[in-house]
Amino acid sequence: MTYEGWILLTACLVGISCGMVGCFLIVRRMTMLADAISHSVLLGIVLAFLVANSLNGIYMLIGATVIGLVTTFAIQSLHNSGVQEDASIGIVFTTFFAIGVILISLFARDVHLDVEHALMGEIAFIPWNTYTVFGIEIPKATGMLLCITIFALLVILMFYKELKLTSFDAALAVTLGLPVALIHYLLMGLVSITAVGSFDAVGAVLVVSMLVVPGTCAYLLTDRLSVMLLYSCLFGAASAIFGYYGALWLDASISGSMSAAGGILFLLTWVFSPRYGLLRRYRAMITS
């Protein structure tokens, strides 16, 4: 595959995996938690690097998942001790992120990991760093993202019912004997690994836009969760593709441009959605 092909594929995988997972965050009103996790993941990656002294994907994945769950747990504990939920989120992730940034500046300066990378990823470099699987040479980050996307898809397919029910009506889920807390942590684990998978491509901060924007667009277009998941993946891939070509045209940051493209897609959906769009609202107001 060409250089451009790999970048597009990687970007689309980011859009699809984040789009899928993001839907559940939106219907659970937990996008802020995702914002927190995607920032904290930076600390996980840095710690994994300091401990294992390598940038191997597996260590990063473990480190980030652990920190992601620690973040979720810390926020929950603070909230339980009486701190407002959004304030708990604000305390935990900014602190973790700050520690991550300081550690990078102190210890990891000379390696591939730097602050700029953490911020916006380096999708343009991904195709250079490859390994060979079954005789095909594929970029490492793309391979990892592919695995993560498939894994996330499998988890969502297997636990679709449970994820849906705990999102919609946790009280009923409790009376039916579903392990509500476990499913919550399962989802947060999924958010963490998706965030790590996307880290190389779009960085810790812009992952949030891939997690939230496609799902929000889909949310304005359908009343079925399953359809919303599908649309969200499509929107994710579309932001990736438009973002990439937009970046080529402007000669600017690819990840930033993916996020901006998502913003434009949202704006269009917001205005033109046949179900919940501003135009329809406006027309309904005039006729009534």
Binding site: L25, I26, R29, M30, T31, M32, A34, D35, D86, L119, M120, V205, L206, V208, S209, L211, V212, V213, G215, T216, Y219, L220, A247, L250, D251, A252, S253, S255, G256, S257, M258, S259, A260, G262, G263, F266, W270, Y276, L278, R281
Partner: peptide
């Protein structure tokens, strides 16, 4: 106020899209 999108998602959306746009301009 004009859609059924909840406040948390709206905040995240605006935050990340504006920031992304900022990164595009900054890289330029």
């Amino acid at each position: 106020t004009t859609t059924r999108i909840k406040k948390d998602a709206a905040i995240c959306l605006i935050l990340s899209v504006f920031f992304g746009t900022g990164i595009v301009l900054l890289s330029k």
